[in-house]
Computed example of a mutant assay.
Amino acid sequence: MNLLQRFSDAFLKDINLGVLLINLDYQLADISDRACQMLALEREHILNKSLDDIFATVPSQHQLVQRSLLNGAIVRNHAVSWTNNQERFDLLLDSSVLKDSQGNIVGAYVIFKDVTNMRSLEQMVQRSDRLAMIGQIAAGTAHEIRNPLTSIKGFLQVFRRAFGERDMCKEQNFTDVMLEEIDRINALVNEFLLLSKPRHVAYEPILVSEVLRGMVPIIHNEAILYNVQLHYEASCHVPEVIADNELLKQVFLNVCKNGIEAMPDGGVLTISERVDTIERNVCVDIHDTGSGIPMFVIDKIFDPFFTTKDTGTGLGLSVCQRIIHDMGGTIRVGSKGFGTTFTISIPYT
Rank of each mutant, 00 (worst) to 15 (best):
N2H: 08
N2D: 15
Q5I: 10
S8R: 06
S8V: 02
A10I: 10
L12S: 02
D14C: 08
L20Q: 05
L20G: 07
N23L: 00
D25A: 06
A29L: 11
C36K: 01
L41I: 04
L47A: 13
L51M: 13
A56E: 15
V58Q: 12
Q63A: 02
S68I: 10
L69R: 03
V75D: 06
V80A: 05
V80P: 02
R88I: 00
F89Q: 01
F89R: 02
S96Y: 12
V97P: 07
D114G: 06
D114Q: 03
S120L: 14
E122K: 15
Q126I: 11
R130N: 12
T141N: 10
T141S: 13
T141M: 12
T141E: 14
H143K: 12
E144D: 15
P148V: 04
S151H: 14
I152M: 11
K153H: 08
F159K: 07
R161H: 12
A162P: 01
K170D: 14
K170H: 13
K170V: 15
K170C: 11
E171W: 03
Q172Y: 05
V177F: 12
V177C: 11
M178T: 07
E181T: 08
E181M: 14
R184I: 07
R184K: 14
N186I: 04
N190H: 07
S196H: 02
P198N: 00
L207E: 06
V208L: 11
L212H: 01
A223M: 04
N227T: 06
N227Y: 05
Y232G: 02
E233S: 02
C236T: 11
P239M: 14
V251Y: 04
R274C: 14
T277F: 10
T277Y: 10
R280V: 05
R280E: 15
N281D: 10
C283S: 10
I286F: 11
T289N: 04
T289P: 00
G290A: 05
P294C: 00
F302D: 04
F305T: 14
T307W: 05
T308Y: 07
T311V: 09
T313G: 13
G316P: 07
G329D: 01
T330E: 06
I331A: 02
R332V: 07
V333G: 02
G334P: 09
K336S: 12
G337Q: 01
F338E: 10
F338T: 09
G339A: 06
I346M: 11
T349V: 14
